[in-house]
């Protein structure tokens, strides 16, 4: 069960920016990360396309982990218009588009930025990111364990 902040205490929050859900580990790692964030008293908010969000909704029917989930373009609009800000931002990356979204989040948010990199070409993708961010990378496609281990090592929820 998630810790509930005390009365008057500001709610800590983290944004999870999901990519195209074609690589299976994304949904699994997103749920795991939301679990760890909630345990640490950080409220996770998800932004993604309809398929990426629907995968989470179906996998978490009682919404134990998933809270607010918003269309990616709407979320970018709200951030750009200064209606939202987050303490942490995790961008899930397995292709070039993911790099573009991460760079965009780095430019429009003040949050601590994490690039969660996975998939067949995780090494090349990690090497091509030259803007400031914390990289959490593993060659994980179907098996989420290597990426989970990297997340546990970095423990961003403790930062």
């Amino acid at each position: 069960m998630a810790d509930i902040p005390g009365e008057g205490q500001p709610q800590r929050s983290a944004l999870l920016v999901l990519g195209c859900p074609q690589v299976p580990v994304q949904t699994s790692i997103a749920l795991y990360l939301m679990h760890r964030l909630r345990q640490a008293g950080i409220n996770p908010v998800v932004a993604g396309n309809r398929s990426a969000i629907t995968l989470l909704v179906v996998a978490d029917p009682r919404r134990q982990y998933l809270g607010e989930a918003l269309d990616l373009d709407r979320m970018i609009g709200q951030i750009t218009e200064k209606k939202r800000d987050f303490e942490h931002c995790f961008v899930f990356i397995h292709n070039d588009a993911g790099i573009s979204y991460a760079a965009t989040m780095g430019a429009i948010l003040k949050a601590r930025l994490y690039a969660v990199i996975y998939g067949e070409h995780s090494d090349q993708i990690a090497a091509s990111i030259d803007f400031p961010c914390n990289k959490i990378a593993a060659k994980a496609v179907h098996n989420p364990v290597p990426l989970k281990k990297m997340l546990d090592e970095v423990a961003p929820w403790a930062a």
Partner: peptide, 8 residues
């Protein structure tokens, strides 16, 4: 113009 599943 970038789309998550299709690149730029």
């Amino acid at each position: 113009y970038t789309k998550p599943c299709h690149g730029t």
